[in-house]
């Protein structure tokens, strides 16, 4: 059920979380730079959205951005030198970096072993 726009309602924030904006920013920047094509991006996003819907995911903004992130990961590992393995290792590195950084301090990746 849709509703007319309420001109008096406070404006919703454009993004619910910063990473959502970063996903679209990266996708658009890679399209602009010719790293991926606009159609490939639309197709990958469409495929992830269809998959989420088929899996019974709720029809929400959170589901949309999760699909966008999955689409960007898929396209990046297909069309750029970044591999899925590198992504997994780098994610683990960031997780460790967050765990060992005191709250309030800038989080940096350690280049040498912990």
């Amino acid at each position: 059920m849709f509703r007319p726009e309420d001109p008096l309602a406070p404006r919703d924030p454009v993004f619910e979380e910063p990473w959502q904006a970063q996903v679209l920013a990266m996708a658009d920047s890679m399209v602009q730079a010719g790293r991926i094509s606009a159609s490939d991006w639309a197709d990958a996003l469409g495929a992830e959205l269809a998959r989420a819907e088929a899996a019974g995911q709720p029809d929400t903004t959170a589901t949309y951005y999760a699909a966008a992130l999955a689409a960007l990961e898929t396209l990046t590992t297909k069309a750029t030198p970044i591999t899925a393995e590198e992504l997994a290792i780098r994610k683990a590195d960031w997780t460790r970096a967050h765990e060992r950084t005191p709250h309030g301090q800038p989080v940096r990746l350690a280049r040498d072993a912990d």
């Binding site: 970063q22 990266m26 890679m30 951005y65 750029t80 780098r90």
Partner: peptide, 25 residues
């Protein structure tokens, strides 16, 4: 762990830092 970013946020950080290092963005 309550200060750990979400799984999605960590995946985005991984993507962004690798894409920057490789000169993609």
């Amino acid at each position: 762990h309550s200060h750990l970013p979400s799984d999605a946020a960590l995946r985005v950080k991984a993507l962004e830092s690798l894409a920057v290092e490789k000169g993609l963005i």
